[in-house]
């Protein structure tokens, strides 16, 4: 049975189809753990928002909607280029694959740069929780709680973005060597699922953090 073992088929699998199914199931299970991971943060967010709705609204109004919206668009676009990468890998179109991977990396980078500017502005406005936190207005303690969640949630999301960009660079280097073709594209597909998940987290974060109490 191991007479026709191609180089991209790991020794523990009988055939390419089994390998593909295993890696797809593996990433979905991993994404379930990710849902539970972010779920803990969302739970805390929901509990406190229920307790302090006014403070959550006041905190949210200090965030820059324009930058948040641009970043949302950037990430959705990056999901498109990621999907195109997977498609190109499945068809074995090497140039298109590398190009789309690079585009995804670039868009991810743009997101992080914009995010960094937003963080910097929060430092300037003394909205970073801790000793220097200062908020003019009522419920300043609870607004600090809101910002603790803002930084933890967006920070965790940004860490996932950085890891994703790292994996994309590795894929890009592999794709330059022509490692992916129509019989073997699991790594691209699996990374794509991860990337879409990270985007999806942002799709939830944007309204929950930026758009409270705006009609």
């Amino acid at each position: 049975m191991s007479d026709s073992h191609p180089s991209y088929l790991a020794h523990q699998f009988d055939d390419v189809e089994q390998q593909r199914q295993a890696s797809t199931m593996g990433i979905w299970l991993f994404l379930i753990t990710e849902v539970m991971f972010f779920g803990g943060l969302f739970t805390g967010y929901i509990v406190y928002r229920g307790m302090y709705p006014e403070a959550w609204k006041l905190g949210s109004h200090e965030l820059n909607i324009l930058l948040g919206a641009i970043n949302t668009a950037v990430l959705i676009l990056s999901s498109l280029t990621m999907a195109l990468s997977v498609h190109a890998a499945q068809l074995g179109e090497q140039k298109k694959l590398s190009r789309n991977l690079l585009a995804t990396i670039g868009l991810g980078g743009v997101f992080l740069v914009i995010k960094a500017f937003e963080y910097k502005a929060k430092f300037g406005h003394h909205l970073v929780p801790g000793e220097h936190f200062h908020f003019e207005g009522p419920f300043s303690n609870q607004v600090q709680l809101f910002y603790s969640f803002y930084f933890t949630m967006t920070g965790m999301h940004a860490i996932h973005m950085v890891i994703g960009i790292g994996i994309l660079f590795w894929l890009w280097a592999q794709s330059r060597k022509g490692k992916f073709h129509k019989d073997y594209y699991n790594p691209v597909e699996v990374t794509g699922l991860y990337w879409h998940f990270v985007d999806l987290v942002w799709i939830f974060l944007f309204p929950l953090l930026y758009l409270i109490g705006r009609h």
Binding site: L29, F37, G40, S148
Partner: peptide, 24 residues
């Protein structure tokens, strides 16, 4: 798979509260 990520994020919350002075 369903439980461990939840304690992971809970430990992260303790970490950021203790290390960075956030107030969760």
């Amino acid at each position: 798979l369903l439980g461990t990520p939840v304690v992971a994020i809970t430990l992260v919350m303790i970490f950021v509260e203790r290390a960075f002075g956030l107030g969760i």
